[in-house]
Design a protein around this nucleic acid. Structure first.
Lengths: 159, 159
DNA sequence: GTAGGGTTCTTGCGTGTGCAAACACTGATA
DNA sequence: TATCAGTGTTTGCACACGCAAGAACCCTAC
């Protein structure tokens, strides 16, 4: 049995794992060091901040974040306990709930955004020139779209 | 505050996250459906299987898997409970321990490998032609190396 | 030889997450 | 209107992981 696996697909997968892991790790470390925010907390603020009314339905936020509904519910609990978001009832569907950015949440987000941008600039844009970055984006998009098409829409959780 | 973030770096990061997440998810689902093995368990078997003597020091395995020593210790507990690996004392350093593939572990690995290969073939190689795959690998490697160089060697855990 | 600082691994504890069930509500059908 | 299958959210539980501390051991310096 040959397990040496010098196969180009395995190498590509390995690089995907390593690039992703190292980039995500360093970005989260810097973010936490400069703002005290965890990765998931920042992502909640970011996604709410760029949504109309600075709010999002719990379910939509869960899908965007590749989190199960229960996982998101508790993440919002924690972010809400920190005062950065609030829950708001949905007017048209009484089962529904929104997560809304608070003023304090918006402030913390404004503070964190430049840190995130700078990290991306240094660690991602610093590695590749603009044309290469476009190339990388295009290739990754093809992979994502292909996986989603082949595998049906069951591509959410399982971390 | 403009949060629309059409910025190419943010897009690139988004694609990295989505390509990685969807690929990893679909591969783990298929693996589990066909072999009953979880992703981390399979990775343990794979790494041991391609190592000389089909064994690896716990610490080395932890580093390879981007896992903390304690996380790996317990992962090996579980895989050992399933009978697929065993712990073995190190002859030259009595603090040390090896994880070794058992016969049953080798059997299950041999069974799982084609499933993994086929998944990679379908979902990764199926999205890109060979030249593009090389290109992707090269770009990702540049990102990884750049991050590691910039950030010092503190790029392990934090999931 | 023995002291002491560094290492390898494991264990106690806290935490973040998924799954399944519970709950509240909606919307379509009769 | 009454019913009922389906949807949106939260909660109970289990589990995998990281951190810090502990235990056993190595190795160098004296």
């Amino acid at each position: 049995m040959n397990l040496i696996a010098k196969d180009s697909r395995i190498t590509a997968m390995g690089m995907l794992v390593e690039a992703y892991t190292s980039l995500r790790t360093v970005l989260e470390q810097e973010l936490h060091a400069h703002t005290g925010l965890s990765g998931p907390t920042f992502e909640v603020l970011l996604r709410l901040g760029r949504s109309p009314g600075r709010r999002l339905r719990m379910n939509d936020l869960a899908v965007e974040m590749h989190l199960s509904p229960s996982g998101l519910s508790r993440l919002v609990d924690r972010v809400a306990a920190a005062g950065l978001v609030a829950r708001e009832a949905c007017e048209t569907d009484r089962r529904g709930a929104y997560a809304v950015l608070t003023a304090e949440g918006a402030r913390r987000l404004a503070e964190a955004l430049p840190v995130h941008e700078r990290g991306l600039e240094r660690h991602l844009a610093g590695a590749l020139d603009p044309a290469e970055l476009e190339q990388l984006t295009a290739l990754l998009r093809r992979v994502r779209d292909h996986v989603r098409a082949e595998a049906g829409p069951i591509v959410a959780p399982l971390r």
